[in-house]
Design a protein around this nucleic acid. Sequence first.
DNA 1: CGCGCTTTATG
DNA 2: ATAAAGCGC
Length: 482
Amino acid sequence: MSHTRYHSSIVWLRRDLRLSDNPALYHACQQSQQVIIVYIHADDDDSPWAMGSASRWWLHHSLTALQQQISQLGGRLILRSGPAHTTLDSLIAESGAEAVFWNRRYEAAHREQDRLVQTQLAQQGVPVHDYQSGLLFAPGTVLNKEGLPFRVFTPFWQACQKLGLSQTLLPAPAQLHTSTINSLSLADLKLLPSISWGQGLQAEWQAGEAQAHRLLQAFCEQALNDYPQARDEPGINGTSRLSPHLAFGEITPRQIINALLEHFICQTKDGGACDHYLRELGWREFAHHCLYHFPQMTSAPLNRRFAAFPWRHNPALLRAWQQGKTGFPIIDAGMRQLWHTGWMHNRVRMIVASFLTKNALIDWRLGAEWFWDTLVDADLASNSFNWQWVAGCGLDAAPYFRIFNPVTQSEKLDAHGRYLRRWLPELSTLPAKWLHQPWKTPETIQEECSIRIGIDYPTPILDLGSTRQQALLLHKQLPKLH
DNA sequence: CGCGCTTTATG
DNA sequence: ATAAAGCGC
C-alpha cells in the first residue's frame, strides 16, 4: 500500500519537534523518495502570542536535539525565518518539492496561517497533507448529544474515554536523506536570552524527544504509583515534568497513554494512579478543545458576568508577586522557582494564581502574561484556561468562594518546609512552625535564627483576611445576566 | 483544586 | 473535650 507519489516533499514542523508518532513526517516518508524537514521561525505568525522568553530558550535546545537526531538518520534539519507562506513558497521554488506535509495547530492565529498557506499552495497546484497529532482528538470532534461543545470537564472526559484513548503509534523513519537546500544556523534565529538567565534553565532541563521518553520511563517506574498523593507536594518529585516536552510536541499524549497503560498491565500497578494521571492529560485536552470553540478565551472572561470586574491597578503589587517578594513564603517560593527554572509545581501555580486574582484583585490576564513569558511549558490553551479557572470566570471554573489560603496550603502541602527552604534560603534556619508565616516569628526566635523579618525577608504585602472578605463581597455583587 | 461553622463520633 | 465529618456560601 505504501506507494511513492512524490519525488520530494516538505515536512513543515512547528509544535511537533519529534521523529516518532509524527503523522506528517511518517506519511511524507511513506509517499516521497526524499523529504525536506523544515522549521520556520516567525514571531509575527504567532501574534499576538509570540513565544515568551522561556519558550524561546526551550525551542533553541529542542531544535538542537532535533538537528542531532535527524543527522543521525542521515538527514538535515532546514531552518528558515520569515512568514510561513512566503518561506514555504521559496522553499518549493528552490527544492522543486511537490507536496507539503504538516501537523495542524488549532489556535486561532495558526488556523488562519494554515488557511493562508493552503490557499497559496492550492493556487500553485501543490498538494497539502495535514494531520492531527498533538492532541488525543481533533478539536471540534468531541461534542455532547446536542452536537455542542462540552462546558464541563467530567462529561467531556467521559466522552473522550468512550471514544478510546489508546491508539497505535507511528514509528520514526528509519533513515532520511540529506538536502542541499540553504539553511540558517540556529544562532541566526536569536532564540536565547541576552541576560544570563538561561543558566538556571540549563541546570534544570534537557530538551528533546529522547529526554522526554527517559522522563516518561522514569515516571512510570518510580513515581506513578504514588502520583495521587505525591503530586500535591511541591517538595518532592512526584510529577512527570513532561509539560514542556508536551508543549513542544517532543512527545504526544498518545505515546504517554500507551506507555502508562503498558506499564499498568505489565506491573499490575494501581489503576487509580494511572487514571489520575490520565485525567491531567484530559484537562490539557479540554483546554485545547475549549480554546478552539471559544477563541476569545485568551483575552476575555468566558463568564460574561466578569466583563466589568473592577480589577485593581497595582503595579507595585504585581511586581512584588512576579519577583517573589510578597512576604508569603509559598507564594514567593513558587514565583522564584518559576523565575529560576521556567517551571512551577502545579499545585503552587494554583496558589499563586489565587493570591494574585483574589487577594491582590489583579486581573488574571496580567498573571497569564507573566506565565506566558516565564514558563518553559507555556501553552496558550492550558495557560488561558487555567487562569480563568482560578479567577472563577472560566468554564467549569472554581466557585467564587474557593480562595486558597497560602499559609494553610503551605502547612498542608509542604509540612516540613522542604520546598520553602529550597527556594527561600534566607528563611532556611527558621523552624517549620514559623516557616509558613514568618511575620509571626517572636523576636527571640528571630535572633536565635539570625533572621530579621522585614529586612532579610519581607513582611506580608497585604492582609489575607480582609482581602479575602473584599473578594467574596465583590464576587457576590457580580451583575446577574439575563 | 476552601473556609468556617455546626453536628456527630469517640474516649 | 476534642476531633472528624457534614454542609452552605
